[in-house]
């Protein structure tokens, strides 16, 4: 019996990182049960596979924002830690925490024939001055619901207010390069060194001013990586390497949620949930430090096809979204 007790006793006790996927599945299952859904939704940047919902190979995987799950994360975190972590000592520290949170989330990995459905809130500042300087006169909110083919080959549908527009995505981006699609992200490396090189190559071809190329490329990839949080984790590591990143301790995203931010030298601030460091969205500032635009993603889900909606307008040609 003693030999049996020591057999494979070298197996280590699992730590938080080991258990994060299973914990995420539990939280999502709890959330799905609480809301009486058969499908499992995902809080943006917090994919949770759940018993009652996502099964591997299931055709449709639903995800959505909900305060309850955020609360679940917070409660669980407190119970483990009891004493909350101290505030991040630096932008690098904050991004490292955000990377750990993102890395714990399972990837969606859409198939090429699937549709990525997103609901986002965009908040824009209206300025009196034509150069958008000074203080904004007011803020304007817009809900943007999009159904995007994972590989860009099918129709793209967009709901803005009462209008639903159907269009095609261009296979090439504005710089005549093949667009990076949601489906493409599965092939991007997550080890930071390889990713750094891949991002540099992509940034080199970006038509923006040279000093902005890296930042724009990273932001684009962070947005798109809603379907691949493991990649987003490594992208945060690259952001932390950029010169001039600073902590913005008090931010509000486009949904009005309080957050902490990491501001790049170019004026983009990534906003994170202050307790879990879950990515919420981003904000842009003008040269006077006023937020001129912010973006928050509410929902991301995979669908097998476009929903049947009454299209109010069909855009000719294609857009380089």
């Amino acid at each position: 019996m003693d030999d049996l007790k020591t057999m494979w006793a070298e197996v280590p006790v699992a730590d938080r990182q080991d258990l994060a996927p299973a914990r995420a599945r539990l939280l999502n299952g709890m959330h799905g049960a609480r809301h009486g859904r058969a499908g499992v939704r995902r809080e943006e940047a917090g994919t949770r596979h759940g018993e009652a919902g996502v099964r591997r190979g299931r055709a449709s995987v639903r995800f959505a924002v909900a305060g309850g799950l955020a609360a679940a994360l917070a409660v669980g975190f407190v119970v483990v830690q009891v004493v909350a972590d101290p505030a991040p000592a630096s932008a690098q520290d904050l991004l490292a925490r955000a990377a750990r949170t993102a890395a714990a989330e399972p990837d969606l990995n859409p198939r090429a024939d699937q549709v990525v459905h997103t609901v986002a809130r965009d908040r824009s500042a209206i300025f009196a001055a034509p150069d958008a300087s000074g203080e904004p006169v007011r803020m304007q909110d817009e809900v943007r619901e999009a159904w995007s083919p994972a590989d860009s080959s099918g129709a793209f549908m967009l709901r803005q207010g009462d209008q639903i527009t159907l269009m095609k995505l261009c296979s090439e981006s504005f710089d005549r390069k093949r667009r990076t699609t949601y489906a493409d992200l599965a092939s991007w490396p997550t080890d930071v060194a390889s990713l750094r090189e891949r991002v540099r190559q992509a940034a080199a071809a970006h038509p923006a001013e040279p000093h902005l190329r890296m930042s724009y490329t990273l932001q684009n990839l962070i947005d798109k990586s809603v379907v691949r949080p493991s990649l987003r984790a490594s992208l945060f590591a690259l952001i932390s390497e950029m010169e001039g990143v600073t902590v913005k301790p008090s931010m509000t995203d486009a949904l009005g949620r309080a957050g902490v931010g990491v501001r790049t030298a170019e004026g983009t601030t990534l906003i994170f949930e202050p307790e879990t460091y879950r990515y919420l969205g981003y904000a842009e500032e003008n040269r006077n430090g006023h937020v001129i635009a912010s973006h928050a993603l509410e929902t991301v889900e995979l669908l097998d096809r476009l929903p049947k909606e009454k299209v109010t307008f069909t855009e000719p040609g294609c857009i380089p979204a």
Binding site: V13, A14, D15, L19, A22, R23, L26, L27, M30, A33, R34, G68, A71, A72, V75, G76, V79, V80
Partner: peptide
């Protein structure tokens, strides 16, 4: 229901 996560944290390792 969210408190159930504490049971996970306690026994899952």
């Amino acid at each position: 229901p969210e408190l159930f996560a504490a049971l996970f944290d306690r026994h899952a390792p």
